[in-house]
Amino acid sequence: MSVTQKSYFTWSIAIFLGVLFSEVLYPGLNGYYQGILMVAGVNIMLATSLTLINGFTGQFSLGHAGFMAVGGYTCASLTIYLLPKLGLSPLGIGFFYAAALIAGGIVSGICGYLVGLPSLRLKGDYLAIVTLGFGEIIRVIFLNVDAIGGARGLTGIQNFTNQRWIVACTLICCFIMFRILGTNQGRGMQAVREDEVAAEAMGVNTTSTKVGAFVMSSFFAGVTGGLYAHYYGYLNPSTFGFMKSFEVIVIIVLGGLGSVSGSILAAIALTILPEALRPLQEITKVDFRMILYSLVLILFMLLKPNGLLGRHEISYYWKKFRRSKT
C-alpha cells in the first residue's frame, strides 16, 4: 500500500469507529458517562488545536480559553438573537448551527490574528504573558457586557450539541492537525520552533507561519467554544479564566509537546482521571484535581520533560517497534 492509501485506510477506520461510537455505543451509556465523553471530545479539540501553536510552532500561548470564549459567545449570540427571527426548518436549523459554529471560529480566528501579531516580536515568557493578558481582557469585557449576560452569564442557549456534532468536529479537527504534519506548512512551523533565524535564512516566512498558526489554532478553539456553549446551554465568563487555559497546557505538555496523538491520549486520560478520583474528592471535600495537575506537571518537567510521546506520533513508535523486531 502506498502512503496515501494507507492514510485513507486509517481514516476510514477512524470514521467507522466514530460512527459506531456516536450511534451504537454512546446512546447505551448513562448520562454521567456521556457527559465525561463529551468533555473528552471538547478537550481533544482544545488540545490538538493548541498543539499547533505550542507544539509545532514552539510559541507559548496561555490564552486558549479566551479564544474558546470568543467563539462560544459569538456562536451563542447568533443562535439566540438571529435564529428565532429566521423561522427555519429543523434541517435549516442544523445548517444554521453549523454556520454559527464556523462564524464563532472565524471571529476567534480574527482575535488570534490580533494576538499573533505581537508574537512576531515577543518570545517565550513575554508571549505567554501577553496571551494570558488577552484571555483576561476578554473575560473582563464579557463580564461587563450586559447584552450577553455580563457576570450573570449567558442563559437560554439551546442544546444543539449532541454526540454527533462532537464526534464529527473532533474527527475533523484531528484530521487536519495530523495532516498538517509532513507538509510545507507543518515543516515551516517546526522550523520556526527549532530555530527562527535559520528558518528565515532557509526562506521560511516566520511571520506568516506564526500568525497562521495562531489564526488556525484560535479558529478551532472558537468552534469548540460554540460546541461547548450549545452543550451546556449556559456560558459564564468565569469558566474561561486562565485556569482553563492551564488545563489545556497541562494536557499537551503531558502528551508530549508537538505530538497530536500524544495530546489526544492525554486529553482523554486527564478528563477521566479527575472523575475517577471524584470519590476521594468527596471524602476530603477539596478539589485536589488542580493540585494533582500541578504536581504531575512539575514532576514531568523534572523527570520526563518530553511528555508521553515526545514530539513524535504513535506511528513513529510503532514503526520503531516493528523495525526492532525484524
Binding site: 495532516r179 510545507n184 515543516r187 530555530d195
Partner: peptide, 29 residues
C-alpha cells in the same frame, strides 16, 4: 544552526519547500 530535533531529510525539505510550496487546502487534502 541546523533544525536540531528534526531528521536529516526534514532539514533539507524545509529549505526546499520554498521552491515548490502547496496551499494549505492542497496540503491537508
Amino acid at each position: 544552526r541546523l533544525f536540531k530535533d528534526l531528521s536529516v531529510r526534514d532539514n533539507i525539505l524545509i529549505a526546499m519547500d520554498r521552491t515548490a510550496p502547496s496551499s494549505m487546502v492542497a496540503s491537508i487534502l
